[in-house]
Design a protein around this nucleic acid. Structure first.
Lengths: 193, 193, 193, 193
DNA sequence: TATGAATGAGATTTCATTCAT
DNA sequence: AATGAATGAAATCTCATTCAT
């Protein structure tokens, strides 16, 4: 599949020849289905985006889940998808770089990015409503979530090993819960455990 | 400087012509100083590596710093470098992708990666010695640190704004200290709904 | 119709896809009716040739017309055809170029050219018989007619406007009659300043 | 020279390979001097335009010439250039078609066309001032001149023979003077010869 | 008859690299 | 040391043509 090639070699580094070989056709035949290499790339992107967002939507659209459960479910789903098809996360990470190197790829990427932010916002909304998140720390939390998800994505791509990824995810959750690093009381914080 | 070009356009996307233009010479002259474009890239990489690691070393080699102070200092130094020269982090992030796309670039990148791990290990050693970190959670902490630093790097590169980066860094530290997300002893969850 | 496409974009520049689209079929279907794109082109050419020559024949085969009337009729018929279907002249002009660029198109074009010369010869014959044309100026007249018809064709194609074409035709007739440019016996020029 | 190739095979039909072969270099080297094939074409066009217009300017800028002499000189110069370098007229005729087939070539062609019109206008001005041309027939004369020059150009290109071209030019001049075709008095015209 | 997927040859273009000067 | 003209390999893309269905 073209996704694997794009993830491995990037947009510029993936040649039509490779794409065609993977598909068992000639380079000319590509243009029967797509108008350009860019078109192939964007089609792959949109398919990837769709696959991932569908799974995420199943989590966030479940009104019965608490904040805690939602976070757990999203991370769980991420890990699952990673195990099922390693190219999904690899491609998206790769694409986040390629999109910023080619102006014509950027809009599609930003659209995807925007949708992802939507999930995080819904997540935070749930937390605020539930009372476990202070309203004034929304922006900070959004920042932190972005940092954590970016970090997890890149780390897992580098590791290339679902088991290690799962372990790292667990460790990160522990860190987020203040169970890993020493924590000083930052004002009105009650001691947890 | 070539670093800016490589950071912006990647290894494949940066042409010798651009490198030469930025340096105020001709493409032919490049080959008086380097044996190939790859050689230029690796030279840029090694210089970047040296600049960053020198600054980090100044922090970790100060035996008087506590774990807490060391973490703070490292993050502070990262932010400072980011403000002084935005191309450093941008190039390294870019390089982490390009290195994995071209086998001949990988060894140099892995070497750099290894050195970075050394700093984190030293950091953890200090924490264990100080008693603020449990010895058995070393691996988890190393994972978490990698996730957090990767996340911060990519987030800052995307933001492209030192002020926003600093804010995100602060938010991440808060998260790490357990001050942001709700933390509950694992297992003893109240029933939701 | 394919004629419009060939006239507009030329032989090389017109793709089978466009031909098929214009005809409301697929590219593959073209090969049920023609053996090649060249075959399509030549069929268009021959149809165009037939349409035009039929109209011309109606003029020159009318034995009752005087030289003057024949010239007027031919020009009139040219203008009429131009108004009825602008693609006829446009295609022939276009073809006169394309035929000379592709050796396999040339014979068909030359054949058409030869037929056109036949009409001009008949015209001159009528003029000589009528006594309004000197027998020894036959060659010169043939040259002049060719120049004038070529000029009118190309000018009208460029103008793309039947009304302007008609005006230019009238002006050219005036010029041919010596009513436009100053004419003086050759040799006996007055000294100019 | 590239002009010969473009004249013979047209803009689309002339390949970089042919251009390079003619120049004794490889296709890649073309791009050391030009940014695209189109750029090569336009450079050829502009050079051709310059050569021809320089020669024409020498005629029309000579204030001592009468209308009659100017016309004779322009035709003479045209014939001379045609003998010296047959590719000049051949290319311009070819270009008049190619320019209308490719929107990006058109502006340069129209600019050239506009300059040529300038010469004709100057010519007519001289005739009006001299009293040999009626002021109210300016438009008709411009039309007729355009038709005649277009016709001569295309006829000479088809003939491909400077001697025949010269003969055709002479015949056309005779026709213009009313010496060839039978002319009926069109109103106030005095009998000439 | 007709479709449309597919081919394969060839076109334009890019670019790291070389080398005479 | 440095230039910049030139190469040659490879990439993207086009298109007339074929052929299984």
């Amino acid at each position: 599949m073209a996704r694997r090639e794009f993830a491995r070699s990037g947009y510029v580094g993936t040649t039509n020849r490779r794409i065609a070989e993977q598909a068992g056709i000639t380079t000319g035949a590509i243009y029967h289905y797509f108008t350009s290499k860019r078109d192939v790339y964007l089609a792959v992107f949109e398919e990837t985006d769709r696959i991932i967002l569908t799974r995420y939507q199943e989590v966030t659209s479940d009104a019965l889940l608490s904040f805690e459960e939602m976070v757990a479910q999203l991370l769980e789903v991420s890990s699952q998808m990673n195990s099922e098809d390693e190219t999904l996360a690899a491609f998206l990470a790769s694409a986040s770089v390629d999109a910023h190197r080619d102006p014509e790829l950027l809009p599609t990427y930003l659209e995807h990015d925007h949708k992802m932010m939507g999930f995080f916002s819904q997540l935070i909304d749930a937390g605020v409503e539930e009372g476990v998140i202070h309203d004034e720390s929304r922006a900070d939390i959004l920042d932190a979530i972005r940092v954590l998800t970016l970090g997890l994505t890149w780390y897992s791509v580098r590791l290339g090993d679902p088991v290690a990824h799962r372990r790292a995810t667990a460790a990160t959750i522990q860190a987020m819960r203040g169970n890993l690093f020493p924590s000083r009381p930052a004002g009105r914080r009650r001691a947890t455990r």
